[in-house]
Measured scan of single mutants.
Amino acid sequence: ENVVSAPMPGKVLRVLVRVGDRVRVGQGLLVLEAMKMENEIPSPRDGVVKRILVKEGEIVDTGQPKIELG
């Protein structure tokens, strides 16, 4: 899985990584606000952040790609 998608609709509060960052499985990639709760979205695997496809403040839909890992 190279693309991390939104598990639920919500607002991107914070992006916790930058392009080029090495990430580990379970590491937080971003914080999504859904139903007035903050949810940290974890990396599904070890890898390197290739692209960030969302911006802080953006509203995302379920299944929308957010971060691409290499």
Rank of each mutant, 00 (worst) to 15 (best):
E1C: 15
E1D: 13
N2T: 15
N2S: 13
N2E: 11
N2Q: 11
V3S: 06
V3H: 09
V3R: 06
S5Q: 09
S5T: 13
S5W: 12
S5I: 13
A6Q: 04
M8W: 15
M8Y: 15
M8C: 11
K11S: 03
K11H: 05
V12S: 00
V12N: 00
V12I: 13
L13W: 02
L13F: 03
R14I: 08
R14F: 07
L16D: 02
L16I: 06
L16Y: 06
V17K: 00
R18M: 11
V19A: 07
V19R: 06
G20H: 06
G20R: 04
G20M: 05
D21I: 08
V23G: 01
V23R: 00
R24A: 09
R24F: 12
R24I: 11
V25W: 10
V25Q: 13
G26N: 07
Q27R: 03
Q27Y: 04
Q27F: 04
Q27G: 03
Q27A: 05
Q27L: 05
Q27V: 05
G28R: 07
L29Y: 01
L29M: 06
L29S: 00
V31T: 07
L32Q: 01
L32D: 00
E33I: 12
E33L: 15
A34E: 05
K36T: 11
K36V: 06
M37Q: 13
N39K: 13
N39L: 15
I41H: 01
P44Q: 05
P44N: 05
D46I: 05
D46E: 09
G47K: 01
G47I: 01
G47E: 03
G47L: 03
V48T: 10
V48P: 02
V49N: 01
V49C: 04
V49T: 00
V49K: 00
V49H: 00
V49A: 02
K50C: 14
K50V: 14
K50M: 13
I52C: 05
L53G: 04
L53V: 04
L53I: 07
L53F: 14
V54Q: 01
V54N: 01
V54Y: 02
E56T: 08
E56Y: 06
G57W: 06
E58I: 04
E58G: 05
E58V: 05
I59N: 10
I59D: 10
I59Y: 14
V60L: 06
D61N: 13
T62E: 13
T62A: 15
G63Q: 06
G63I: 04
G63Y: 08
Q64A: 09
Q64L: 05
P65K: 08
K66Y: 15
K66N: 15
I67N: 01
I67M: 09
E68F: 12
L69Q: 01
